[in-house]
């Protein structure tokens, strides 16, 4: 039963899965709200909220990036149908994270915010990641997908890789000294992007093997 469900869920099963996933994605926010209400966020609750929202943005991003490899490994194509909701949740948590910064940290002091964006790399790259998320969220509907056309839409949505890299860099650059936790995110991201590159290489069309210039380029890019 379970096997059949995971292999290819019916419409109703998929709807149930989506509802469950929706609630699951909301859970971190509900937990945060619960802890805030019960004064259980420690001495610096605003910092705790900002951190938790940022962390969940990053975690959801990494979860999204596991879907396509997971589909490939298991052959369960329906997994792709969960990506839109997860993607919108990434955007949702990113907005909340950004809002805590703009409001609870800077109290809409635009001068200070502008200074931060220009002077502090971790803010710069965090803002860039958010800016890159906006078009992806804006083009998430079926109608937009049609309007752009599958290929262009897909190209646009590949910026999620850049966003994830920026997100991890944003985290890395803000910690004072102990980079253990950002290192874990960086390692996971490296694996997720690495398998894509590896598959691309293994599945490259045969004709690509002949011209040496292209191969050289792809090699040097891989080194970088």
């Amino acid at each position: 039963m379970v096997w059949r469900l995971s292999c290819n869920p019916t419409r109703r099963q998929l709807a149930a899965i989506k509802i469950a996933l929706f609630l699951l994605c909301l859970a971190p926010l509900l937990l945060l709200g619960w802890n805030a209400w019960n004064d259980a966020l420690g001495a610096n609750p605003i910092e705790a909220i900002t951190r938790a929202l940022g962390t969940w943005t990053l975690r959801l991003l990494l979860i999204i990036l596991t879907i396509s490899p997971l589909r490939k490994l298991t052959g369960r194509h329906w997994l792709l149908r969960l990506r839109r909701m997860l993607g919108l949740f990434v955007f949702f948590y990113a907005i909340l994270h950004l809002t805590t910064y703009l409001w609870l940290d800077k109290f809409f002091d635009w001068q200070a915010i502008a200074n931060d964006i220009f002077k502090r790399p971790f803010i710069t790259i965090g803002m860039a990641a958010f800016a890159l998320l906006v078009p992806l969220a804006a083009t998430s509907s079926n109608a937009m997908m049609k309007r752009l056309g599958g290929k262009r839409w897909q190209q646009l949505h590949r910026t999620v890789y850049v966003i994830a890299i920026f997100g991890v860099a944003h985290y890395w650059w803000l910690v004072k000294l102990d980079v253990t936790s950002p290192l874990i995110y960086a390692a996971l991201l490296t694996i997720l992007l690495g398998v894509r590159l590896l598959w691309r290489y293994l599945e490259r069309p045969q004709k690509w093997q002949e011209p040496s210039s292209i191969r050289c380029r792809s090699k040097t890019m891989a080194k970088q």
């Binding site: 001495a43 610096n44 605003i46 910092e47 200070a112 200074n115 931060d116 002077k119 502090r120 790399p121 971790f122 650059w173 803000l174």
Partner: peptide, 10 residues
């Protein structure tokens, strides 16, 4: 990496 102009009093 960050501004020292303001602070949050716990």
């Amino acid at each position: 990496r960050w501004s020292q102009a303001t602070e949050r009093r716990i």
